[in-house]
């Protein structure tokens, strides 16, 4: 008895020829006392079934808001959400929570950043897994328990019977994140969001969790959006990478292309901030100079221009559009893109 069989049975296919996810000009603004926070400001991309997209950017660039906005998980109050999110051809922007609840957990699921706070502290782990199963799949309690057991072993948790009866606080961070993954994949979603799933974890378990996500994604043929601030994390793990800055995608390309041929100065800066194995052990971590942009009163022109080494007057007055994809599927928004030298890539795995 495995969880996969349920994945199949629950997979309803309204229009299977449409791409899995089409995001078009998605905007998400927060109304605050200080003004309108433009956290996501016109993001567009398409994700096909079973493909993976890495979303990379500094802290505050709007990655989390983007993921939650696509999934419709943001509160309605004081949030302006516009644009279009089509999941298998069905428009989700403007859908009410009761419609969304049919997608949440069943068609799309999310693994959150902090496993310490993402699990209900006063509910047994087993219950937290079966709850979603019983919500979406018409199965008995026993059946759900069996499935939960199978799920726990498939995410690499030893002694699953015992773990099922435990509370989250009785587990380590890595274990809890495995549980979160089990919860997310329980109903066999077609799309999995992983929002910095390893940032809160020990370095030693980070790779394990990322590998687990990758194998689960492949085994179940899920599409995955992996959000991270670390280009190193997505390097070998995603089909495509979108680089976000100030709520916009500033560069997007298939992973290989991006690393061999990056064009945006921000991507370049991000990449050089990854510590390299070849560095002498006490090299100081390079960080990108300047402060992340103010999302309430963003700079005119290119949002990155105040921090950009190559910025000109044009950059400061006119905002560069995201270019049409070239033959490699490479897009970027920069008036003076980095030339095809790409020496920086040498240090990347």
């Amino acid at each position: 008895m495995s969880a996969e069989s349920f994945a199949e049975s629950s997979a309803t296919t309204p229009s299977s020829d449409a791409p899995l996810l089409v995001v078009n000009n998605l905007k998400t603004y927060f109304k605050t006392d200080r003004g309108l926070v433009r956290a996501v400001d016109g993001v567009s991309f398409t994700l096909e079934r079973g493909r993976t997209l890495g979303v990379v950017g500094e802290s505050g660039s709007g990655k989390t808001v983007l993921a939650r906005s696509i999934m419709g998980l943001l509160p309605k109050r004081d949030v302006e959400r516009s644009g279009s999110v089509k999941f298998e051809g069905v428009e989700l922007v403007g859908a009410d929570n009761s419609l969304m609840a049919q997608y949440w957990g069943d068609q799309m699921a999310m693994v959150f950043q902090d496993p310490m706070t993402s699990l209900n502290p006063v509910m047994r782990v087993g219950k937290q897994i079966t709850e979603g199963l019983r919500q979406h799949l018409d199965i008995s309690k026993d059946h759900a328990n069996q499935t939960a057991l199978a799920l726990l072993s498939s995410v690499g948790i030893p002694e699953p019977e015992r773990r099922l009866r435990q509370y989250p606080h009785e587990m380590s961070g890595g274990m809890r994140q495995r549980v979160m993954i089990a919860i997310a994949i329980a109903c066999g979603p077609k799309l999995l969001f992983a929002d910095e799933p390893t940032t809160a974890l020990d370095v030693t378990v980070q790779a394990q969790i990322l590998d687990l996500l990758q194998t689960q994604q492949r085994d179940r043929y899920m599409a995955m959006i992996l959000v991270t601030h670390d280009l190193g994390v997505v390097a070998g793990r995603t089909d495509e990478i979108a680089v976000m800055y100030a709520g916009k995608i500033v560069e997007k390309a298939p992973t290989k292309v991006l690393f061999s041929n990056l064009r945006h100065p921000y991507t370049e800066a991000l990449l050089s901030s990854i510590p390299k194995i070849s560095d002498p052990s006490h090299t100081r971590l390079k960080t990108i100079g300047g402060r992340p942009p103010n999302l309430i009163n963003p700079p005119t022109g290119c949002k990155f221009s105040p921090r950009c080494a190559y910025a000109t007057d044009k950059c400061r007055t006119e905002e560069p559009p995201l270019s049409a994809p070239d033959s490699d599927g490479h897009q970027f928004s920069c008036w003076f893109p980095v030339e095809l030298s790409a020496k920086q890539t040498s240090g990347v795995r």
Binding site: L73, S98, W104, N120, P121, E131, Q135
Partner: peptide
């Protein structure tokens, strides 16, 4: 406001159940 409430929502648990089963006890 807690993260685990978002988790429950993302599982597709109905609001009523989130309120009474997840939020009330803590």
């Amino acid at each position: 406001q807690e993260d685990f409430i978002t988790t429950a929502k993302a599982k597709g648990i109905p609001t009523r159940r989130i309120l009474w089963r997840h939020a009330l006890r803590p």
